[in-house]
Write a protein that binds this DNA or RNA. Structure first.
Lengths: 172, 172
DNA sequence: GGGTACATGTAATCAGTTACATGATTTA
DNA sequence: TAAATCATGTAACTGATTACATGTACCC
């Protein structure tokens, strides 16, 4: 209900996750949800999962409940206002596409050894791809359609990058 | 010569550009060089091009010369130490691959409308692709091999993203 | 000679990262 | 019960972004 703190991607990740479960979660729960889902293609530091919900609660997007005893853990849940915010965000088209902010490509641009970079980046992407595919094999059926779609995009992306680096190597 | 300020990708972009030209450049010159080259796939704010060289000069990676009269513009050039740093960086393999930090995919994950997102992202990527291809057509021959390689990667990346979004749309 | 676009810079803010710290739970 | 690992959190820093501000040159 305060003046709105600006909402960043991190904000929407927190809001989005809490919207999905429509229940309470601690920062640690959020961390768990992140791993193996959004976290695959959009890193969020665990400390951000403590700071961000606090900001969001201050803005009225989340409600906060704190344990009385013991650890005094914080539980967050999304409010109507929060849900409205995610909804609006979901509907609004992004103004930007993904930037290829690839450290490997940066080195390539500035004269790094193409063959070495290609070999190295390929193996990293292959590992990532394997992870995605394992994930899909394991819980494709239990996964909401939206998330599955995003996972497919992740898989396609890794495949594309592998192909791209193969070309770099081939072109010598 | 100081305790080293940590070198970030931005640092290496500045160092890399100054290494390429092996001469002096003002922050504004750097901005110009960036546009239409690295800037295409790795955004750097113009104000960073004022702050970063200063840091780098403090660390001994750049030399700084300031105009006596008029605007008192700052001219930077890379030092031997700077050249050594880029060199080492070039040689060292990145520990990370590109993350697909795509706002569109994020929305997809959290339930954004696939068809709408696909249509929208596609047109953005197509614009980017067209820009790259124009660039290549225009100065492929005058461009150092390393930069051309990076440009090719950029082109391939845009094509891949277009294909990926086409699949999203097709899968409905 | 007034406007507009290019050029140049600084200051404040802030999100994200790093580092530090400690509490609880399991396992050997 | 000691060690290790999982869980939970805070503090400090800092790179990057935003916003502001002004100077210079060209054009009408």
């Amino acid at each position: 209900m305060q003046a709105d703190p600006r909402l960043t991607p991190t904000s929407y990740i927190v809001l989005g996750l809490l919207d999905l479960i429509s229940g309470e979660a601690t920062p640690y729960d959020l961390k768990q949800m992140l791993a193996g889902s959004v976290g695959n293609f959009w890193t969020v530091q665990h400390s951000a999962l403590y700071a961000e919900p606090e900001r969001l609660a201050a803005g009225g997007y989340l409600s906060e409940r704190r344990e009385e005893s013991g650890r005094r853990r914080r539980f967050y849940a999304i409010t109507d206002e929060g849900r409205a915010a995610v909804d609006a965000w979901r509907r609004q088209m992004p103004t930007e596409t993904a930037q290829l902010r690839d450290p490997g490509v940066l080195k390539l641009f500035f004269g790094g050894d193409p063959a070495a970079l290609a070999a190295h980046q390929t193996s990293l992407h292959e590992a990532k791809l394997a992870g995605y595919e394992a994930l899909r094999a394991q819980l494709a059926d239990r996964m909401p359609a939206a998330q599955l779609r995003a996972l497919e995009v992740g898989i396609a992306f890794e495949r594309a990058m592998i192909a791209i680096w193969a070309d770099v190597r081939a072109a010598g």
